[in-house]
Simulated assay, not measured.
Amino acid sequence: MTERALVIAGFAILCALALGLTTLAHLRPNLLAPLSKVATAALAHRPVRIIAMLCWAWLGWHFLAR
């Protein structure tokens, strides 16, 4: 297996895991909170909003500016 195929397989596994967790969260909200509720609760605090904005800016600078 080439390095490229390994990276693609890793991202496919991460996407499948995220999709499975999202489905589980919507089917059983008492077991796992949906991402929208977690984000709403976290972004209610100013320091978290600032950190999220800085992380988003960093990602944009490093991946979209080139």
Rank of each mutant, 00 (worst) to 15 (best):
M1Q: 11
M1P: 12
T2L: 02
E3G: 12
E3I: 14
A5P: 00
A5T: 12
A5R: 14
A5G: 13
L6I: 14
L6Q: 15
L6M: 14
L6N: 11
L6P: 00
V7K: 10
V7W: 08
V7D: 05
V7I: 13
I8Y: 07
I8R: 15
I8W: 07
I8P: 02
A9M: 07
A9C: 10
G10H: 11
F11H: 12
I13N: 07
I13Q: 10
I13F: 10
L14S: 06
L14V: 06
C15R: 04
C15S: 09
A16L: 13
L17G: 02
A18T: 08
A18F: 07
L19S: 09
G20H: 04
G20E: 00
L21C: 07
T22D: 08
T22H: 08
T22P: 06
T22L: 04
T23R: 05
L24H: 04
L24S: 02
A25P: 00
A25H: 01
A25K: 01
A25G: 00
A25E: 03
H26A: 00
H26R: 12
H26Y: 15
L27R: 13
L27Y: 12
L27V: 14
L27I: 14
N30L: 10
N30C: 03
L31Y: 08
L31Q: 05
L31N: 00
L31I: 09
A33D: 04
A33C: 00
A33P: 02
A33G: 02
A33M: 08
P34K: 04
P34V: 01
P34L: 01
P34G: 00
S36L: 04
S36I: 09
K37Q: 14
V38M: 07
V38N: 00
V38P: 01
V38D: 07
A39M: 14
A39V: 15
T40G: 05
T40C: 01
A41R: 13
A42Y: 00
A42H: 02
L43P: 05
L43T: 04
L43K: 06
A44S: 10
A44T: 03
A44D: 06
R46Q: 11
R46D: 11
R46N: 10
P47S: 04
V48H: 06
V48F: 06
R49S: 01
I50F: 06
I50P: 02
A52D: 08
A52H: 03
C55Q: 13
C55R: 13
W56A: 15
W58G: 06
W58V: 14
W58L: 15
W58P: 07
L59K: 06
L59H: 11
L59P: 02
G60Y: 09
W61H: 13
H62W: 06
F63G: 01
L64G: 03
L64R: 05
A65Q: 09
A65R: 12
R66H: 13
R66E: 09
R66Q: 13
